[in-house]
Design a protein around this nucleic acid. Structure first.
Length: 486
RNA sequence: GGCGGCGUACCCAAGUGGCUAAGGGAGAGGUCUGCAAAACCUCGAUGCAGCGGUUCGAAUCCGCUCGCCGCCUCCA
């Protein structure tokens, strides 16, 4: 298995520190606001990576944090006129809500910064003692010049960074790039914890260092997050952690690409963002997930409603095929199997090559787009096979294998895992279908009578009426089915 | 200014030296159907931003040019 390591800029063979045990940490969110689709991408992508590692047989300890103390949270609390911890609680709950809808599994450990103040203070103290940090008037700063490797993750040198620095320099810092480990509490009502340097709160990066140390030890196998965290967040995290422990902090750094709108990065400050909630208001969560996974995790994705709609159409076709497959199994149960007739080779080949193709794709830096392509190829073969009107035990076995394989892929991607009925129910909700099922059945029955009397005008009127309400009728061999228009 | 990335069909997108350049969406024609829908079949880039070069062979490596974007500030 190869994965792209930001630290080296290359695809590398994956070798965890301890054989089949993997320690993985993903930077979660700062809970000061609702999440947008960019947050969803990061969560979904690393959810799949974690699932795939499990699939490969690794024992994964997956840690995803909440940063629940930060200037942005304090500002928000002021705005909303509620205590800062209520801001954190509120948006943590919103986060869980969004993630569950997107099919993102909970992490094994979900630590919060405020639960690790003791560790943070211990680390800061240690860094001061080792001469990597200094105290100025109740604040504690990390001295970047004390750490020779500073800049090694993001690939920049101290001198280069200073030239283009856009930040106002704090005169109390020894070097403009020095960053805060501990911030003095200055205003009344601000959250504060006692420390050797007086009351204050943690700086931005130190909480992740403290949480990783407690939950995963000194060296992590994988540390992941959005590409915008490479600098300064991950660079600083790496620096302070390695300065503190003297050990390699992370073996593989993984970073996902951005979501763009009109080619520009989606971000809070530009105001060009779409929240997860508003997107899920219009589209099925599975379509959103497919939309996110159809592109390699490091490439940018252009957001648009049309692109999500396309994903939804893909899924519609997928579940149509699954319905067909389901109907086949039912018919076999009823009619019994006659001796298998000659069956074409396509499906057999697709079935036997599928697993290899899937793992090859995923082994190559988690190429979910290619893996999804393979699923669609398999579906195409299933359809072709069913077109031959197969019957008999051999056909059933082959199709059962195909279904089993899709189930395996579904376990990794957390896509394609519903039943056709569940997909329909989901669409009824998302598309706000107002006609109830009994009314649809009544109209189908009325139309059946009209058709029996060759009253095509009435029959077509009923079809049109239902289509307007988002329901598509499909005439089968001896009955009429319906589905929600995606 | 420093560092990095991207440009593949109408749209999205995989592919980073060698079998006919995956897959999806949209479209056209066909089979099926009372009409549809779905499904399947067929069609669709002799070419991968442009120009040179390396090579028996390049979308894939190298150089230049054009266009777009990101990080260097909070950010997934």
């Amino acid at each position: 298995m190869k994965l792209y390591n930001t630290a080296t800029g290359k695809k590398e063979d994956f070798r965890p520190l301890n054989d089949m045990k993997v320690g993985m940490y993903v930077c979660g969110v700062t809970v000061y606001d609702v999440c947008h689709i960019g947050h969803a991408r990061s969560a979904v992508v690393f959810d799949v990576i974690r699932r795939y590692l499990r699939f490969k047989g690794y024992g994964v300890k997956f840690v995803k944090n909440f940063t629940d103390i930060d200037d942005k949270i304090i500002n928000r609390a002021r705005q909303e006129e509620i205590p800062w911890y209520d801001v954190a609680r509120k948006y943590t709950l919103r986060y869980y809500d969004d993630m569950r809808r997107l099919g993102v599994a909970d992490a094994d450990v979900e630590p919060r910064a405020t639960e690790h103040i003791e560790e943070i203070i211990r680390m800061v103290k240690g860094l001061v003692e080792k001469g990597h940090a200094y105290v100025v008037d109740g604040d504690v700063y990390f001295s970047v010049e004390s750490f020779p490797g500073y800049g090694k993750l993001s690939g920049r040198r101290l001198e280069d960074m200073q030239a283009g620095a856009r930040v106002e320099v704090d005169a109390r810092k020894k070097n403009p790039m020095d960053f805060a480990l501990w911030k003095k509490s200055s205003k009344e009502g601000e959250p504060a914890w006692d420390s050797p340097w007086g009351p204050g709160r943690p700086g931005w990066h130190i909480e992740c260092s403290a949480m990783t140390l407690r939950h995963l030890g000194e060296t992590l196998d994988i540390h992941a997050g959005g590409a915008d965290l490479i600098f300064p967040h991950h660079e600083n995290e790496l620096t302070q952690s390695e300065a503190y422990t003297g050990k390699q902090f992370v073996r593989y750094w993984l970073h996902n690409g951005f979501i763009t709108v009109d080619k520009e990065k989606m971000s809070k400050s530009l105001g060009n963002f779409f929240t997860i909630e508003e997107i899920l208001d219009k589209y099925s969560p599975e379509a959103v997930r497919l939309f996110l996974l159809q592109t390699h995790y490091r490439s940018p994705i252009e957001f648009s409603n049309e692109n999500i709609e396309e994903a939804e159409h893909s899924l519609e076709h997928f579940y149509q095929s699954m319905k067909r497959l389901e109907d086949f199994f039912l018919s076999q149960g009823k009619e019994g199997a006659d001796a298998g007739k000659k069956i074409p080779k396509g499906l057999e080949e697709a079935v036997s090559s599928f697993m290899g193709a899937l793992t090859d794709a995923m082994d190559d830096d988690f190429n979910t787009a290619l893996a999804i392509g393979h699923v669609f190829e398999l579906v195409k073969e299933i359809n072709r096979f069913l077109d031959q009107r197969p019957s008999g035990g051999e056909a059933v076995r082959l199709l059962e294998q195909a279904r089993e394989l899709i189930g395996q892929a579904s376990g990794v991607l957390n896509l394609f895992g519903r039943t056709p009925e569940q997909w329909q129910e989901m669409l009824i909700g998302v598309k706000r279908i107002t006609v109830d099922e009994r009314e649809i059945e009544r109209l189908i029955e009325e139309r059946r009578k009209a058709r029996a009397g060759r009253d095509w005008k009435r029959a077509d009127a009923i079809r049109a009426e239902l289509e307007q309400k988002g329901i598509i009728l499909e005439d089968g061999k001896d009955s009429t089915g319906w589905r929600v228009k995606a």
